[in-house]
Design a protein around this nucleic acid. Structure first.
Lengths: 204, 204
DNA sequence: GTCTATAGTGGGATAGAC
DNA sequence: GTCTATCCCACTATAGAC
């Protein structure tokens, strides 16, 4: 069974740029430990989310798939928000790892490697992407450290240029959202949109 | 199902002038009339939405603000989806009108006029923007015609270039969404992000 | 066109027994 | 750690009286 808690390795930082700022914060965060049972509950919730979307995740459904009753969950997690935060943290780390892998596997064009991985991950996890992106993030250490991990590959590949990196992120987030919501005109050449956007925003 | 989609057919829009395609479809759509009472219900729902977000809009709340009971609403509208479609249609038309006004009031740089109006409208109507963009649109004529109206100014200002227009839309939608969800790093120069993105994506 | 009454379904969460 | 029982909440929607 694949561990949803995989992390990406450390990244070398060079100058005083966005990379260094984020890395230094990441180093100060202590992520609280979850019990094995709590992790299991979150993994099961994730399965239900990816199958049925956000509304499918209820304490009753999660408990049922675990073979217990809903009240039992409260012995392991304080409330439903804790489950959601756990799912979001896993999603952010998974997305970050995918982008990092895309960067590493595309040495000649690492930006495109990251972007392609970003898009693929979102299309493969539409409901998790929705959960991750639809609301402000919980400021707690669990989610916060995962958030910093998620953007690492893009920051790296944009050489820590904050404006350039956030601009590419905005474009990619917007386009993948339109794709997921089926909002592009029928017959649109989606690949051409990605190419045009990224080539226009690529740093010189 | 979708009579509006069927009129256009699966046309590849990528290499054609998006203006003509959309305008010709818009001309064929007959928007169904709503009774005055139905319009009033939708307007009240819109007030509640803008104040309290999507979850605040329930048949009970809408009815309460109208001074009636929830079951009475069903004499004027078939179900809750009809209310949501009405709100979405109003939102799309309002956004389109704002962008059109922005274009007209910025003769020297109409693209920037549209983009600025787009951003301002979204920041002023965050919950309505969320409702409009968070899910696939109902294919019926009411929403469909409003959708075509919404993108008119941007299509015009991009000279009907579908790829360029949709790329700018993706960027703008992504960035304004990140703004609304408070997902940009603290201290980000948001204006700089808009400038950098739009100037990079602006057609020559 | 509005009302009362209600069906039917779902949700999060707690208390206390075992 | 799990259970039963329960609370209280919310929601969409329908039937039928007035």
């Amino acid at each position: 069974m694949s561990s949803a808690w995989d992390r990406t390795g450390p990244v070398a930082t060079a100058n005083r740029d966005l990379r260094e700022i984020r890395e230094s914060e990441l180093a100060t965060i202590e992520v609280p430990e979850l019990t094995p049972r709590a992790k299991q509950i979150i993994d099961i919730s994730l399965e239900i989310l990816e199958e049925g979307g956000r509304e499918a995740v209820s304490m009753r459904h999660v408990a049922a798939r675990l073979g217990v009753r809903a009240p039992s969950l409260y012995k392991h997690l304080p409330d439903k928000q804790a489950i959601e935060n756990g799912m979001i943290a896993i999603g952010l780390r998974s997305q970050g790892a995918a982008c990092e892998a895309g960067r590493a596997s595309s040495e000649d064009d690492p930006l495109w490697g990251v972007v392609h991985a970003f898009r693929r991950w979102a299309l493969e996890h539409p409901h998790l992407y929705d959960l991750m992106m639809a609301a402000p993030l919980d400021p707690g250490p669990l989610v916060r450290s995962a958030e910093l991990t998620a953007g690492r590959a893009l920051r790296e590949v944009m050489n820590g240029d904050a404006v350039a990196a956030l601009t590419v992120w905005s474009f990619g987030h917007g386009l993948v959202t339109l794709e997921l919501c089926d909002r592009l005109p029928p017959g649109s050449d989606v690949e051409a949109l990605w190419r045009h956007g990224i080539e226009s925003l690529r740093p010189d």
